[in-house]
Structure formats: C-alpha cells, structure tokens
Design a protein around this nucleic acid. Structure first.
Length: 438
RNA sequence: GUGGCUGUAGCUCAGUUGGUUAGAGCGCCUGGUUGUGGUCCAGGAGGUCGCCGGUUCAAAUCCGGUCAGCCACCCCA
C-alpha cells in the first residue's frame, strides 16, 4: 500500500471532477473560437526547452522545473539541460526562431497549453496551470494596431466567459524609461520593479524602497510618484497629465504617442473596462513598450488574471535579427479556479451523455445495443447500460450523472421504444431513427 | 528559499482541567419483492486522530522534531 497522503492532491497541481472539467473544456472551446475569429493559428510547442533558452531573459528564475531522469546513473550529476517551460511566450519565440523559413509573417499564433513554475502555491497561484496566449511576431516593425487589438480580444473573451467585471490597466514602458531617463535616473528597470509594487505597499513604501535601494533623492522620488499616480481612461487627459510633469525626452514622447493611440482606440468600450495606469510595469524583463494587466474589477487583492505586452527583442535575441512581437496571455487556471472556489461555476452534468439506453428485464444484449447504435449513428451521445440490473438502479445511475434522457428499447417481437425525459418526468413512445434530444 | 498559522472519516467539522469500544452532517454502498430516478425509511462500509519520538499508570488532547497544507514575502497567469 502506498501512503494515503501520496494519493491526495498535490498543492498547486489542480485536478477537476468531470462535471467541472466539462465546463473548463467549454471555456477552452470558446476561447479558441474567439482567437480564431481574429485569424490566429494554433501551434503547440513541446513542454521542455533548453535551460539556456528559458534563462535567456533575465536569469532571475530558479523557479523552473528542470528535467532529470529518475534512474540516473551514479555520479552522473551536473547541470540539467532541459526544463519545463514556465510560460508560452519564450517557447513561442524559440519556435519562431526555429521555423523562420516556414512561417508567414506577421506570424499570428494562439497557444493553449500548460506551464509550470516552481513557486510556492497560494490562492490563484499554481505550479501547473494553463495559459491561453495570442502573439504577433514580425520581421518588420509591428503596427500599433495590435497594441490596441490584443487587450480588446481578451476583453471579448472575458465577456464571453462571463467571469464578472474586469479592468485592463495599460501602460507603456517607453514612457516609464523615457521619464526616468529624463530625470537622470539610469536604473530604469529597478525603478519600474519597485513602482510596480505600489498596489501592495503604497506610495510611502515605494518612496522608502527608492531611497533605501536606489538612493534616489527626494525631488526625483516625488516625480516618480507623481507619474505613478496618473491614471485615467481618456487618452488626452492621461498624456496631458504626464506632459504637465515637465519631463521631456525622445523616448518619453514616443511612448506617450503610443499610449495615446492605444487608449484612444479603447475609448469606445464601456467605462471602467480599460484604464491607463502609469504605475503598471509588469515584472518580465523583456517588455519594451505597451504592457497590459487584467484583474477582476471587484477583487483588487487577487493576482493578475491576464497579462502581456510588446517585446522588441525577445525573438530576435535568439537569432540576432530584428523580430519584434506583442502578445497577451489569459491565466485560464487562475480565473477558472477562482470562479470554482467562489461557487460561480454551475456544473450540470457529470457526463456528456445525452441519452442512456437502459436494459429492461427480459431484454437481450442485442436489443439494447441495437437501440444505442441507432441513436449514436445519428450523432446523439448515447450510453448503453452495461448490465441487466434493476430499473431502479439504472434510473438512479442516469439521474445521479445528470443524463437527461433514458431510452427504453423495444424488447421482444411486439415491443415498442419509449423515451423518458428525466427533467420533466414525461415518458412517451419514440422512434430511434427520428427522435432528437431537446 | 524566509516568516506566521493549521493538520480528527471522501467533504465540512465536533471532541482539551489527558481517562473505558473517537462522533455528527453531507457524500458513498445495500435494501424497502415483481420494468422507472430525484423524496422518505432502514442498514452498512470508511479513521494507525498527518508522521516519528518524549512526558505519563494513561495522549486525538501536553512537549519536541518532521512532513504536509494555508497565508505573507519573492515572483507572476
């Protein structure tokens, strides 16, 4: 016997019962349909990448699960070569680099796959989870059109899945870097990382860290905080607000133009759906322009449910070519598990079965099977009861699994088919060659 | 990896001045005779009280360790 604990769920590795999984699969179908409606094509990449590729962008990660053979030869230590991917963007970049000649650009792909991260699990944080990514990669500059389209597509998905109100916060790294550069601060990335914590530690906390860690002077910190405080849905107001801070520079201006365009495009959406927020930074080092962060509007403490942005050098860095990209990722597991936990996923059935062909006493195996085959041939999801048990048991089985119909096959020479609707309790004669479930 | 809290049946939990065969609800299984479920009734299975060690005549209950879970930091979907 294996210890009982070993049979239990492992924290951070979610598993669902069939009724829940069926809802999740319906979500995936819906997401796919929307992605494809915008012309994104599917790919699936292998689960592992060379460690070098994964660590290429900011080697902050000890979070990756490296691959090791269980029955490793004695003393065959050394560093592992491969590891499970921790997101889908880096593998996609490698895939593009590997298949450059076979892809048509701009390459637009979607990818719905699991990813793994070695971090400690918490609410909304898993070690194995599914992401749904769309990205556009090109060998030429990518028009800003996509910067606005990406969050709009994700918004459409969130609406379709009815996950509740969400807010997409948008920023532009060029604005941040340009602004900090204009202030004479070199460590733009460090500042960004700290400012990103504003949500959690507040302005005072940010100010303290900027003083302690980066030794910035008070006047500079004041400007940094003023910038981070700017947020709004109106492109003109937001950009105007930044300009009013009196910092200038080429990169800053470029970023402001981009941010203005994106926000302008999104102004048509319902109020509160999209917000420019100059404190949003996104942790990942490879973002260079527009960045996105989606959260549940009424769950400010719950982590980001979708995120993404523009990256100029991620793909190209693997080939020493110019291959900019932009993408966004939906944290399917994070969103779905949250709704499951809150009881907002209402499963209906434990099986896709639409009709159960029961096995009445006196019926033969052939009679039962014939009815099931006839229904199944017509595309009806049909389950054939597996043994001649008491009708009570068979009915209970159908009922407990949420099968909506029970079929009583014709038995004997003068038998007639009947079907019972378990929802209404009605039972009537039916012809297996024409009947359809409602 | 660091810190805090928690650990009793499949699930939610009750059970402490340490004391005989550890409980409830829900769930699960069986039955309530003959071809019909969801209600009701009866019965049943299921627990080394996370694990190891210590204190004690005696520990689910006290102490130590360990493992696991949750939360925070970190990081992020």
């Amino acid at each position: 016997m294996i210890e009982k604990q070993k049979l239990k769920p492992i924290s951070g590795f979610p598993e669902w019962t069939p009724e829940i999984r069926m809802v999740e699969q319906a979500w995936i179908d819906r997401i796919r349909a929307i992605f494809e409606s915008y012309g994104f094509a599917p790919i699936e990449t292998r689960s592992v990448e060379p460690v070098e590729v994964l660590l290429k962008q900011g080697d902050t990660d000890k979070e990756i699960y490296a691959l090791r053979r269980l029955l490793e030869e004695e003393g065959a230590g050394g560093e592992p070569d491969y590891a499970l991917h921790y997101d889908l963007t880096v593998p996609m970049a490698r895939y593009v680099a590997a298949n450059l000649n076979d892809l048509t650009f701009p390459f637009k792909r979607y990818q719905i796959q699991r990813a793994w991260r070695g971090e400690r699990p918490q609410e909304g944080r898993f070690r194995e989870f599914t992401q749904c990514d769309i990205d556009v990669v090109d060998q030429r500059d990518i028009p800003l059109h996509f910067d606005a389209e990406m969050p709009a597509i994700v918004y459409e998905v969130m609406q379709a899945l009815e996950v509740g109100p969400t807010v997409t916060r948008i920023n532009n790294r060029k604005v941040l870097e340009g602004f900090y550069r204009g202030l004479g601060v070199d460590a733009a990335h460090e500042v960004i990382r700290i400012v990103d914590k504003q949500d959690k530690i507040g302005s005072a906390g940010v100010a303290k860290m900027l003083t302690d860690d980066l030794a910035l002077d008070d006047a500079t910190i004041a400007k940094v905080l003023e910038l981070a405080a700017i947020r709004g849905a109106k492109a003109d107001e937001v950009v105007g607000g930044v300009r009013a801070l009196g910092v200038s520079g080429e990169l800053l201006e470029q970023g402001l133009d981009e941010l203005h365009f994106v926000m302008r495009e999104l102004e048509a959406y319902p109020e509160g759906a999209f917000l420019a927020d100059l404190s949003v930074a996104r942790g990942l080092a490879y973002y260079t322009g527009t960045v996105y962060e989606v959260k549940f509007a009424d769950e400010p403490d719950f982590p980001t449910i979708c995120g993404g942005g523009r990256y100029e050098n991620l793909v190209g860095s693997l080939l020493n070519k110019h291959l900019p990209g932009i993408g966004i990722s939906i944290g399917l597991t994070r969103i779905f598990s949250k709704l499951v936990k809150d009881g907002k996923i209402a499963p209906t059935r434990k099986t896709p079965t639409e009709v159960l062909v029961c096995w009445p006493p006196g019926g033969t195996y052939e009679e039962i099977k014939a009815a099931a085959v006839a229904l199944r041939r017509r595309g009806i999801k049909t389950e054939q009861f597996h043994e001649p048990r008491k009708m009570k048991q068979q009915m209970a089985y159908a009922s407990n699994k949420g099968v909506p119909h029970v079929w009583f096959p014709a038995v004997g020479a003068d038998g007639a088919h009947e079907v019972k609707n378990l929802t209404t309790g009605e039972q009537q004669a039916a012809d297996p060659s024409v009947w359809t479930p409602d």
